[in-house]
């Protein structure tokens, strides 16, 4: 029954492969909707929100930030960093191309006071809450 052993082993191998494949796919899902470039983190305090985005290799000239009402749009292009010399790729894992991402915040942004910095491939945009949208403290009067 030699053939059966061989057959069985290969079935398990196939199952293992399938399981790995599934795990790999599920990994992607459990991370949430992360497939968009650039990935962003959103930080908040009472006054402002801050958005940080990983944009390695994007130069500031190729990056465009716009604010309208309560939305922020990051768009630009990540260009391949290579010379014009003839080249052969051995590995290509880094993403390149043009991107555009729009994020909606739970408040109106004071567009005049937005401050963006870009350092070591990380963009940080501080988005202050518009004056009209700031929380008001209500004083309670005893009668």
């Amino acid at each position: 029954m030699f053939w059966r052993n061989v057959g069985r082993r290969s079935v398990w191998r196939e199952m293992d492969r399938l399981q790995r494949e599934m795990n790999r796919m599920m990994d992607g899902f459990s991370e949430g909707a992360r497939s968009e470039f650039p990935p962003v983190n959103i930080w908040a305090n009472e006054e402002n929100a801050m958005i940080t985005a990983e944009l390695p290799g994007v130069s500031t000239e190729d990056l465009d930030i716009s604010v309208v009402g309560d939305t922020l749009t990051l768009s630009g292009e990540r260009q391949a960093q290579n010379g014009d010399e003839e080249q052969t790729y051995r590995r290509r894992e880094r993403w390149q191309g043009s991107f555009s991402r729009t994020l909606q915040l739970p408040f109106r942004i004071d567009a005049e006071a937005v401050d963006a910095t870009f350092a070591h491939g990380i963009l940080s945009v501080v988005l202050p809450r518009a004056e009209a949208d700031k929380p008001h403290r209500i004083s309670i009067s005893a009668n």
């Binding site: 290799g57 010399e85 003839e86 080249q87 894992e93 491939g121 990380i122």
Partner: peptide, 22 residues
């Protein structure tokens, strides 16, 4: 880090994305 590795006539070039590293 995600990398690109390419080969030119006289060198092998490796690019690695490491945002936040100076």
């Amino acid at each position: 880090p995600r990398v690109d590795i390419y080969e030119t006539g006289d060198a092998v070039v490796l690019l690695a994305d490491m945002p936040g590293v100076d």
